[in-house]
Design a protein around this nucleic acid. Structure first.
Lengths: 150, 150
DNA sequence: ATAATCATGACTAATATAATAGACATTATA
DNA sequence: TATAATGTCTATTATATTAGTCATGATTAT
């Protein structure tokens, strides 16, 4: 699995919206500023997330984006898979396409990379944005000297 | 982690050489045929592996490639890291560069993706080519109706 | 009305990936 | 020692992906 900028931006944005869940909409502009993301690129990411059913928007002045589901019901895995596509390390190891490949040496690598896939899935499919938001809040009250920039 | 064609070819080739360890050299042509790899591309991969110290070669007629170390001493992780570069899912999560990023939301993702990295490493760094070769041999004696093609 | 906001498609530049082409070097062996 | 089979090396090409930018249109709170 590799996270592209698009995926990184999507994750950051979903987390930001999770932090604002039930507190009204957040404008693209604010999301871009918070995440240090180019506005026009973020527009694309948000439209993708909207088509994926992760977020919805309110148009016009005082419009913005919001999560369609409570953060407890959105996992990092869902988001990553939706944005990045299949996360299997090898194309031929993608689930439900096993029969295709009859290569001996391929098979032993597929076994191995399937273990990688399983271990990865365990981590990202059990992490929800609610939990991530909780951690962020915990840290902010701790008041570490962190600023908001990459 | 994502395995490119180059990485895939490198892994296949190292496994093939592991199967022939202590049985003389294997020519590029044979390696290409066995792995269904474009010959000229495989040349590059082999040169890379040679520069990385994984294989060595004998030139001239009846020349070819061979492993420089016993397959027990070569892990899949070493090979993947050498060919593909850092396998961390996020560039900013690469080990020893933690201090750089002070982004809050980034931090919680880094924690998570570090778990992915650790789980992945556990799998690929403990798998040796000797073990993979053993499995291939075990299957070939089982005589499943597998042919050598992707 | 109008300003702020979301919506969309076309376009571009940079980079990485996957492969191809061709000249050159080495060496077993007939 | 000629030669054919092999490895070595550099350069080039084609394609895909990534990370954006640009221009324009649609919606709506005020």
């Amino acid at each position: 699995m590799k996270i592209s900028y698009k995926g990184d931006y999507a994750l950051k944005t979903l987390l930001e919206l999770a932090l604002s869940y039930n507190k009204g909409v957040v404008s693209i502009h604010n999301l871009a500023r918070k995440g240090d993301i180019p506005v026009k690129f973020l527009e694309q990411v948000l439209l993708t997330l909207k088509r994926g059913g992760f977020v919805d928007s309110k148009r016009g002045i005082s419009g913005g984006y919001f999560l369609t589901k409570p953060p407890e019901k959105i996992t990092v895995g869902e988001a990553v898979r939706f944005i990045e596509g299949p996360i299997e390390p090898l194309a031929c190891a993608v689930r439900d396409s096993y029969d295709e490949c009859k290569d001996f040496s391929g098979c032993v690598f597929k076994e191995l990379l399937d273990q990688v896939y399983t271990a990865t899935s365990l981590v990202i499919d059990t992490a929800t944005f609610a939990e991530l938001a909780r951690r962020v809040n915990a840290r902010q009250t701790e008041r570490r000297d962190c600023t908001y920039s990459i």
